[in-house]
Structures are given as C-alpha cells and as structure tokens.
C-alpha cells in the first residue's frame, strides 16, 4: 500500500518523493510549536524546560502558542480530571493537521498516583498519543528526550500518510512508523 508502484515494490517512494518526505519532515520538526496545556505539577517542569537552564528553544520550540489554531504539538502536562476532559478533546479538535500529542508525566499517561473517580486514567482515553514521557514529574531532561523521540518519529513519516485521498479525510493517525 503505497502511493506509487515504486513504493509497493521497494518500500521507498523513489528519489523525488523521498526527498520531498525528508524536506517536509525536517521542516516540521525544526519549528514545532507546542500549545500551552499545562494543567498541574508537570506544567511547572514544562516551564522549567522552557526557561533558562534547560532550554528547548534550541530545538525550535521558541514560543508556546496559547491558541490551538497556531500550534502543532499538544503537551498534556498534568492530571486530566473528568471536568476537563471535554475541554481537552475540543482543543485537540481545534488544532489543524499536522498535529501531535505528547503525554507528559504519569498522570497524563496512565492516571499516575490517582486511581479514583475524578481523574482520567490516561489521556489516551480521549486523544491519540504519539509519545509518552514517564516521571512524576519528569525531569526537564526527560521531557527533552521525549520531544527528541517525537522528532525522530516525525522524521520517519511517509508521504503516504498525508498525501493520499484517504489520509486527507481522516485525522492525524497513530503513525505506525
């Protein structure tokens, strides 16, 4: 299942399309803007990652955009309560493609320390997640490692994921890269 016959045979899309792939993926990773979605304690570590000592603007994340319409990456930092879950889903829907979700911390990945009526047991119950970062809260270095893993994942994306008629209609996939 590829775009061209070349891809079905060899697994790669040929010279022109792979160069296009590489160029597009390179551009996407070098200026990925995260959306401000700090909820709880992990937000403080996310702010610390953004601030002076550990600095993710060297990876292209210079600004954090508050508006979902202008951001690429949603870092869900903190515990998601049941009251907040519909808000999170609505914000995810408002983000334009291409978009990625990074679940930061134990509470966003699995519910963390809290296993009760009020906390969603993992944000992947409502949005598809690309990278999970463990920790409570994860150190800034751990978050940076998670972001770089996401960059690597984006680098492995294929043209067929976004340039087919089928892909245009569906939402950002859980990339099987």
């Amino acid at each position: 299942m590829g775009v061209t016959g070349q891809e079905t045979k060899t697994g790669e899309s040929g010279f022109l399309l792979t160069t296009l792939e590489q160029a597009v993926n390179w551009a996407r990773t070098r200026a990925m803007w995260p959306m401000l979605f700090g909820l709880a304690c992990c937000a403080i570590e996310m702010m610390a990652t953004q601030a002076s000592v550990h600095d993710i603007s060297r990876f292209g994340m210079e600004l954090m955009r508050a508006s979902p319409r202008q951001s690429d990456l949603m870092i869900v930092a903190g515990r998601v309560s049941r009251k907040m879950a519909p808000v999170l889903r609505r914000l995810y829907d408002q983000m334009p493609s291409p978009k990625w979700v990074l679940s930061m911390g134990d509470c966003a990945s699995t519910g963390g320390v809290f296993n009760n009526y009020a906390i969603l047991q993992g944000v992947d119950e409502i949005v598809p997640v690309d990278v999970y970062v463990a920790g409570c809260p994860p150190r800034p270095e751990q978050l940076m490692h998670g972001i770089l893993t996401l960059h690597e994942k984006v680098q492995r994306e294929r043209v067929s994921d976004w340039a087919t008629w089928g892909a245009l209609g569906k939402q950002q996939p859980n990339n099987n890269a």
Binding site: K83, G111, N115, N116, Y117, A118, Q121
Partner: peptide, 22 residues
C-alpha cells in the same frame, strides 16, 4: 468542584472510590 451535571456526593462513605483495576 465536580461537573455541574454530576450525580452523587463524592466524599460520602458509601460513594465508591471509583478506581480502575490495575
């Protein structure tokens, strides 16, 4: 603290904790 359409009063002793089995 709870959503406006929530039923039940959570801190009562007969309200279950609502945990998911690990």
């Amino acid at each position: 603290l709870m959503p406006y359409d929530w039923t039940g009063h959570p801190l009562r002793k007969d309200f279950p904790l609502g945990y998911e089995e690990v």
